[in-house]
Amino acid sequence: MLTVSGLLHRFDTADANARAAVHIPELSVPAGRFVVITGPSGSGKTTLLYLLSGLLRPSQGSIAWSGQDIVPMHEGQRDDWRRRHAGFVFQNFNLIEEMTAYQNVTVAAYFSAFSDRQVRGKARQLLAQLGVPDEKRQISSYSRGEQQRIALARALVFDPPILFADEPTASLDITNSKGLAEQFQVLSRAGKSVIVVSHDPVVIGAADSVIRLDHGRLVALSSEAVA
């Protein structure tokens, strides 16, 4: 369950009258939901995603996941929270070129308490499940769809309750986009909260709820999310 209240973020902290990049007085989303954030370019979608995932600290407000407010946390605590609770998928995958698919999936084991052994089985299973050949070859030799699925496996390897994604289908073809949207549905049905920034109709169509932003404000909300 996500509860946002009085959320306001300004990049220019010096000017109190500057337009807020994000301003959401109230929002709550039940757990295990596939939510899409959409809206025109520059409307604050990415900023909102970063705020919700604790990558960016808001100027004001609270963001509580299952009742735990991440705003007052220290940076270190937020890193820790993110490692335990969140997975990330980016528009351009952001895989490490010099590592194999398997190494990319298990990269977080290098800085977490999980041992490589614990994640090993899970990593292989995810790659198989997502249909990515688990081979020792250059990341760039994988297709774009495969690369995004490797990134998805990386996000899921520690089985986080929340998955964040920013325009994950923007550089994929329609087939791969559909496949990824289906994965999001499967994950949310399995109880994960899936928060995806997208303007891709395929993704929007697959979502449980859609949040529409304009100039940093909520302008429309479909389904059961409550403003």
Partner: peptide
């Protein structure tokens, strides 16, 4: 910097 930021997004601490 992107690589470091991605690691951070995946949960790596600033110390790491």
């Amino acid at each position: 910097r992107t690589r470091f930021a991605v690691l951070r997004a995946l949960g790596a601490s600033r110390g790491y």
